[in-house]
Design a protein around this nucleic acid. Structure first.
Lengths: 192, 192
DNA sequence: CTCGGATGAGACGCCAACGTCTCATGCGCT
DNA sequence: AGCGCATGAGACGTTGGCGTCTCATCCGAG
């Protein structure tokens, strides 16, 4: 077992992120090993995806731990979280869409745990009065995933600069597109 | 040609939205026709996807036209746009991920047109001072797509209520999660 | 040096899905 | 009734990718 399993996993993640339909052969080549060895490491394509999923979950939980979601203003915790996830965003974007087509099968319980922790963070922000309460924590969580995936793709295709990643996501998620001191906040109302 | 091509297309959209890997046979059954007839309508799976893409593009452009993106406050135009797209969100979510794995091939020019129009809307909002300028129009456009897809899936899986669709997207996109009169706008400070 | 274990190269069979084709059925129209 | 034509059912060959297996090679340890 001289083969570095972790290295294989990361190469696979990098490739599948770019081409989600990559062949086992391509994955093997991308890791610099033969298909036979790849099969010795992972029983099959499913096993490989599962391993990638486990990796993504582990990285998410690590980022969650590092972000200290229970400390300080919730908004700052969200910023820390997004910043911590940034390096793993491409893999997560891949897993995000991969999950869409699992349809029937139940998904890894790890995601539920992560969902719960992220949702709790948003809930905390609402309780403290920092976040608005008309957007449910479940939706904010979902939106965070969507924005992470969108940003990862946008960066991958060069539509936005990598260095803006965290800023774009957190600012949009927390503050929205509307200018704080906008002259015409909404239209509808009269205020102003 | 008694077969209603449009009906087939919509059935296929509904099915593929739920199960993006559905077989040609499944698509046919879902439309209530045989695989042979399906093949008579669409040369192959590719042709079917292309047709769905064309349908999605047409619906987007129709929604864009109906939203009158050049009239009134940009924020309101965004709301009209999202409201108009809502019925087609599942199909667009499908096409959105489908596009991620086209990798090499150039995508339908229609998307570029739509991108341009949406981007222009955000740009207008920035020019008028309604939107903040530190988030690029390109990113806002990308984020809108991501939120539409996320919302479509969240609704499909029952994580959020269908009736909140437009509100959730527009409010998050425009106003963000932070409470307008939040006690601790950003964090840094401590204020209570 | 010799042995054991891991690896690379590649052959092989399998299977799912595709695309094509044929043929019989059934419906509508004249 | 007779005809035309679209359809449904299904057989058939092809293809791409997977998973398994064999065998030669290589490298490190003893």
């Amino acid at each position: 077992m001289a083969v570095d399993r972790d290295h294989v996993l990361r190469s696979a993640a990098a490739l599948l992120t770019r081409k989600s339909t990559a062949t086992m052969d391509e994955v093997a080549k991308a890791s610099g090993i033969s298909r036979a060895t790849l099969h010795r490491q992972f029983a099959g394509r499913d096993a490989l995806i599962r391993a990638l999923e486990a990796l993504g979950i582990a990285e998410c939980e690590a980022a969650l731990d590092a972000a200290r979601p229970d400390e300080g203003p919730a908004g700052d915790a969200v910023r820390r979280l997004v910043a911590g996830i940034e390096p793993h965003a491409p893999l997560l974007a891949f897993l995000y869409t991969e999950n869409q087509l699992f349809e029937g099968e139940e998904q890894n319980a790890g995601w539920a745990r992560i969902d719960e922790r992220v949702t709790a963070l948003f809930r905390r922000g609402q309780s403290s009065g920092e976040f608005r309460i008309d957007l449910t924590p479940a939706w904010l969580t979902e939106a965070l995933y969507g924005l992470l995936a969108s940003a990862a793709w946008a960066v991958a295709e060069g539509r936005v600069a990598p260095k803006d990643f965290t800023h774009m996501i957190t600012e949009l998620l927390l503050g929205g597109a509307r200018r704080p001191d906008s002259p015409a906040p909404s239209g509808r109302g009269k205020s102003s």
